[in-house]
């Protein structure tokens, strides 16, 4: 019958109208500034630097200022200045650290390449999207103090990924420790072996150990 389609259509919109008052599936609007938005796990925005300890972020940065990310960054928005001295990192090994680590987020294109190339898991993607500032030059140039965020924060925003990274790092550290232990044991054994036989008056072993040292 002519007009039955119109009545069906009116019924559909009437259902929408009534449903919008009681059915959350029909009213999906999130009133953003008042209600927080729920971001998907894989959401990423701009990079940040991971520090091990929230109490001392600058002292415990994972970054060793190897400058790989600086070189790989397609829009070249990362500026790193190496330190002159070395500080012990989380494993106690002396490492360089970044004196300056700036990211110009007005240039950054959130490609995540810096994260992928970083061998130390020191730079990760953040989820903060409320980055509006009143000064578009200095305000959007984030320094290392602004970029450094503790590992616990990383766990908050990307729990699965952070757990995986921690596991890997722990495994690597354990392996390094065991290796160091093994090396120390071997060294001790070698020293013991060296001490027991009568020393030969040749400089061959010293040459070999020097070679080994450079290789290590």
């Amino acid at each position: 019958m002519l007009g039955s389609g119109i009545i069906k259509g009116l019924a559909v919109t009437a259902k929408n109208f009534l449903g919008s008052y009681h059915d959350p599936a029909r009213m999906v609007t999130v009133e953003y500034p008042e209600q927080p938005t729920v971001l998907p796990e894989a959401y990423r925005n701009f990079p940040f630097l991971i520090s091990e300890d929230a109490a001392d972020p600058m002292g415990t940065l994972r970054c060793v200022s190897c400058q790989i990310c600086e070189k790989e960054c397609p829009p070249q928005c990362i500026v790193i200045e190496k330190s002159k001295d070395k500080k012990p990192d989380a494993t106690g090994k002396p490492q360089l650290y970044p004196l300056t680590f700036n990211i110009d987020i007005s240039v950054c294109m959130s490609c995540q390449i810096c994260v992928e190339v970083c061998p130390f898991d020191a730079i990760k993607m953040d989820k903060v999207f409320e980055v509006a500032v009143t000064n578009r030059f200095d305000g959007l140039l984030l320094t290392r103090d602004q970029l450094a965020k503790p590992n616990s924060y990383y766990h908050d925003i990307h729990p699965a990924e952070a757990a995986e990274v921690d596991e890997r790092l722990a495994a690597e550290r354990k392996a390094a420790e065991e290796k160091a232990k093994a090396a120390a044991a071997a060294k001790a054994a070698a020293a013991a072996a060296k001490a027991t036989p009568t020393p030969k008056p040749s400089d061959g072993p010293t040459e070999a150990s020097a070679k080994g040292g450079t290789a290590a």
């Binding site: 919109t13 929408n16 109208f17 449903g19 919008s20 008052y21 029909r26 009213m27 999906v28 609007t29 009133e31």
Partner: peptide, 10 residues
């Protein structure tokens, strides 16, 4: 407002 509700908006 009504049009919004008819289209599942606020």
């Amino acid at each position: 407002k009504l049009l919004g509700r008819l289209q599942n908006r606020l």
